[in-house]
Amino acid sequence: MSKPYVISKKADTFFYGIYDAILFIGRFFKEAVQPPYEFHEIVRQCYEVGYRSLPLISLTGFITGIVFTKQSRPSLVEFGAASWLPSLVAIAIVRALAPLITALISAGRVGSSIGAELGSMRVTEQIDAMEVSAVNPFKFLVVSRVLATTITIPILMLYCALVAMLGAFLNVSQNEETNFVAFWESAFDQITFLDVWASVIKAIVFGFTIGIIGCYKGYYASKGTEGVGKAANSSVVLSMFLIFIEEVIIVQIANSIRGY
């Protein structure tokens, strides 16, 4: 006889899923601090997550910088405040656009790739093969990937902000007489230490979320190739959903520190 459900099939699955995810996160922290450490694999994953994301981050950051500056100019010109453009763009990029763009691109590129890779390893018994050869697959596969995304995405975010500011400078220099140093001084006039730190912390949280969700979905993938597709897809969807929720919470906290 099959087991009766506590609430309903859907509700039970949902709550068991949350419980499993909490256990998974707990296991990550436990395994991350216990030796042996897979340094080589962590470095390899940092390269995969970071270096291979550079072209896409560069292109998206640069275009965002140009487009955001272009779209903001008419409103500022209307109020006679065109000189505020560099500050406005810098605040928008550092506080909001760079962390979000980096996180969403990484969720799509890295999250799906981790979900698919681990899912494929699960259904083809590669994870079982590690386990029976007395290698801890959680440490080798999950800890290394989550650490890589948590370390690399903040760096990518800072790089994205820099490239977006270059895009903004390009647009400003085409329309106004300014030089690089003047633009830079004006842009960072309004940026505080808290702005940068809040964004770095945001990117760390986003990086951890992308890594842990991709690993969780992939590690527990089942049902063959269909399961691999689902793992990749749900890694992206769930990561993006959580990134937006985390964005709201962290902005709220940062604003309360600023006294807004």
Binding site: M121, T124, E125, Q126, A129, M130, E131, V132, A134
Partner: peptide, 17 residues
């Protein structure tokens, strides 16, 4: 420690691709 003494050959080989 016990697994070190057991070899497991999988149906689909399970090589790390």
């Amino acid at each position: 420690a016990l697994r070190l003494k057991i070899g497991f050959s999988f149906q689909n080989s399970a090589l790390y691709d």
